[in-house]
Amino acid sequence: MAPDARLSVREIHWGLIPDMTGTQLLPGLVGRDHAKELTFTGRVLSGTEAVALGLATRTADDPRTAALALAHEIATRSPDAIRAAKRLLDRAGTVALAEGLAAEQQEIGALIGTPNQSEAVRAGLEHRTPAYTDPVGGSTP
Rank of each mutant, 00 (worst) to 15 (best):
T114I: 04
T57S: 02
T114M: 03
L101G: 14
R128N: 00
E107S: 13
E119A: 11
L101I: 11
G113K: 02
L88I: 12
S78K: 03
T76N: 00
D62S: 04
S118K: 06
I112K: 00
R91P: 00
A103N: 07
G93D: 10
Q106W: 12
A69K: 13
P130K: 00
E119Q: 05
I82T: 11
D61R: 08
A120Q: 13
D134T: 11
A50T: 01
E49W: 03
G100R: 07
L88P: 05
Q117K: 01
T94R: 15
I108N: 01
S139A: 14
L68V: 09
R64H: 09
P79W: 01
S78N: 05
L68S: 03
A52R: 09
G54H: 08
R87H: 11
A102Q: 12
L68W: 11
I74F: 05
H72W: 08
P79K: 00
R83H: 06
P79H: 02
A71G: 02
T94G: 15
A110V: 10
K86Q: 10
T76L: 03
R87T: 10
A131G: 14
A52F: 06
A52V: 04
A56P: 00
D134I: 05
E107T: 07
G100D: 15
E73M: 00
L101Q: 14
L97C: 14
G137R: 07
A98N: 08
E99Q: 09
A66R: 03
N116W: 02
V51F: 12
A67M: 07
R64Y: 15
A102F: 13
A92M: 15
A84R: 04
S118R: 14
I82Q: 13
D61S: 02
R77M: 06
N116V: 07
T59N: 04
D62A: 08
Q117S: 13
A60T: 02
P79D: 05
P130V: 05
E49R: 10
R83Y: 04
R91W: 10
R122Y: 01
A131S: 11
L55V: 00
P135W: 06
R122D: 04
E104K: 15
L97P: 11
H72F: 13
E107H: 10
R87G: 11
G54W: 09
I74W: 06
S139P: 12
L125N: 05
L55I: 00
I112A: 03
P135E: 14
S139H: 03
A92C: 12
